[in-house]
């Protein structure tokens, strides 16, 4: 599965468009991390717990998008966009979307 945020893939051409696919996940962090975060709000600096949490969640959103694309028979997702939104205090939604396509080698 090729995942890219450009409309084209070098050396391949699009033979079929399968429409938009997306994946999302809503995550909250646990209390321990929250306490650390409020401490960091005094000292400043990176919140490593949150960084990892968001990275994992985003990975999961991309995997869900990938599963959806596989289920409709795509072999690549082009023009992928990632967005984040804070839906409630302490929870964030990570959303990934892109265009599912079938690619084949370009012999020209």
């Amino acid at each position: 599965m090729i995942i890219t945020n450009i409309e084209t893939v070098s050396g391949k051409r699009i033979v079929k468009h399968l429409g938009l696919v997306s994946g999302s996940t809503v995550r909250a962090k646990h209390v321990g991390r929250d306490i650390m975060a409020s401490l960091k709000n005094i000292f400043g600096g990176e919140l490593k717990g949150y960084t990892e949490l968001l990275q994992e969640s985003r990975q999961e959103a991309v995997e869900r998008m990938q599963q959806q694309a596989e289920s409709i028979g795509a072999n690549a997702i082009l023009n992928v966009r990632l967005t984040t939104s804070s839906v409630a205090q302490g929870a964030a939604e990570l959303f990934a979307y892109g265009t599912a396509v079938v690619l084949e080698d370009d012999h020209v």
Binding site: I2, S10, G44, L47, V80
Partner: peptide, 21 residues
């Protein structure tokens, strides 16, 4: 993209959460 064929295209990302003091 440049017109090359023998390359893989892979999505890469980096993130950071930072707090103000």
């Amino acid at each position: 993209l440049p017109k090359v064929t023998h390359v893989d295209n892979i999505l890469v990302s980096g993130n950071v959460v930072i707090s103000v003091d």
